[in-house]
Amino acid sequence: MRAVICKEFAPYQNLTVEEVEDPVAGPGQVVIDVKAAGVNFPDILLVEGKYQMKPPLPFTPGGEVSGTIASVGDGVQGFKAGDRVVAATLLNGFAEKVVTAANQVAPIPDSMPFDEAAALITTYATTIHALKQRAGLKSGETLVVLGAGGGVGTAACQLGKAYGARVIGCARGEDKLAAAKEAGADELVDYDGEDLKARLKELTEGKGADVVYDAVGGNYSEPAMRALGWGGRFLVIGFAAGDIPKMPLNLALLNSRDIRGVFWGAWAGQFPQENGQNMAELFELYVAGKIKPMVSASYPLDDVTKAFDDLMQRRVKGKVVLTA
């Protein structure tokens, strides 16, 4: 089979696509014929050695896949060859086949295309955990989404609306704002052309927002934090802007605001039952038409660097996927 190979921690342009041996399912494992694999910013950090974990070299990146079961190992129940599934693999997803633990696999609805399924796991699972378990978002509250035109941002807009929140989507430029609007944002803020704090205060009539969902970091975090009202919750999702902000802690004291970290992968490992319930809810919301992953482009494995370029150049509206 063919797979993307990272031989050294280096710029992602050094990745190669090579022939490797097909994986074999061990006890408790399944092999999946990969139809699509979601591409995420942490994949770039992994191959460049900038992530909080460093896999042994060489390795194949790719943490989320969709496809069909090719074979099952001893002791696996509930799956058979031909089943349509998604899987959170952490690694090895950018390949024609992948082996993974059966407890990391979930069936997908027959109505769900493989590219949308591959775009669901990381962004929507992170977001549902953020809004439910971390923020406790309630119907009628105001949710501010930074980076609202990207993968997790569009997921946050859709899930926020599904939970009955008023969603303010913040992004840079007309294309990203249009993606946020398509994802359900009620109000839009261009944080390159507007005073973010002042505009958020205006849109909330001085009350302030209830929840900020921040996947961007950089210069946008502090003004968004200052726009939170009493008891507001600031969700730390990631730092797509590249800079980790140094937040003045007095902002947490004022208005009794909370700063809450969101690390879905670690939480899912500790609470697999609750994570499974979240995933089941996501598929129910999809079938009900309340969420729909936005895929802006699909590339073959050979064009993995083009997919990463799309992310780095901020051309992605929603998600980009690789197809095997």
Score class of each variant (00 low, 15 high):
Ser71Lys: 05
Gly67Asp: 00
Arg260His: 01
Met225Ile: 13
Gly93Lys: 15
Glu222Pro: 02
Thr323Tyr: 06
Gly26Ile: 12
Tyr286Asp: 11
Leu235Met: 02
Ala118Gly: 13
Val85Glu: 00
Thr142Tyr: 05
Met1His: 02
Ser66Tyr: 03
Asp83Arg: 11
Lys50His: 14
Ala241Phe: 10
Glu141Asp: 14
Gly67Val: 01
Ala88Lys: 09
Asp110Ile: 09
Gly265Asn: 09
Leu57Asn: 10
Gly238Ile: 15
Gly140Ser: 13
Val212Trp: 06
Glu194Gln: 11
Leu249Cys: 05
Thr16Asn: 12
Asn40Cys: 14
Asp310Gly: 15
Gln313Lys: 08
Val65Asp: 01
Gly38Trp: 09
Ala87Cys: 04
Asn40Met: 10
Phe283Pro: 06
Leu159Arg: 02
Ala36Ile: 01
Pro61Phe: 05
Tyr286Glu: 09
Lys207Trp: 07
Gly217Asn: 05
Gln13Lys: 14
Tyr51His: 14
Asp33Tyr: 04
Asn278Arg: 15
Leu251Val: 04
Leu301His: 01
Met225His: 05
Met294Ser: 13
Lys138Val: 12
Met112Ala: 11
Ile291Thr: 11
Gly217Trp: 06
Val34Arg: 00
Thr142Phe: 07
Gly265Thr: 10
Val321Ala: 13
Thr60Phe: 05
Ile69His: 01
Ser66Cys: 08
Asp74Pro: 08
Ile5Glu: 04
Arg257Phe: 10
Gln29Asn: 06
Asp190Val: 03
Asp33Phe: 07
Ala280Met: 04
Lys207Thr: 13
Pro223Thr: 05
Ile291Cys: 02
Pro272Ile: 08
Asn219Ala: 12
Leu143Glu: 02
Gln104His: 15
Val72Ser: 09
Val304Ile: 14
Ala3Pro: 11
Asp192Asn: 12
Ala324Asp: 00
Met53Ala: 11
Asn14Tyr: 07
Ile32Ser: 02
Gly217Thr: 12
Trp267Lys: 10
Leu311Ser: 08
Leu188Pro: 09
Ala3Tyr: 09
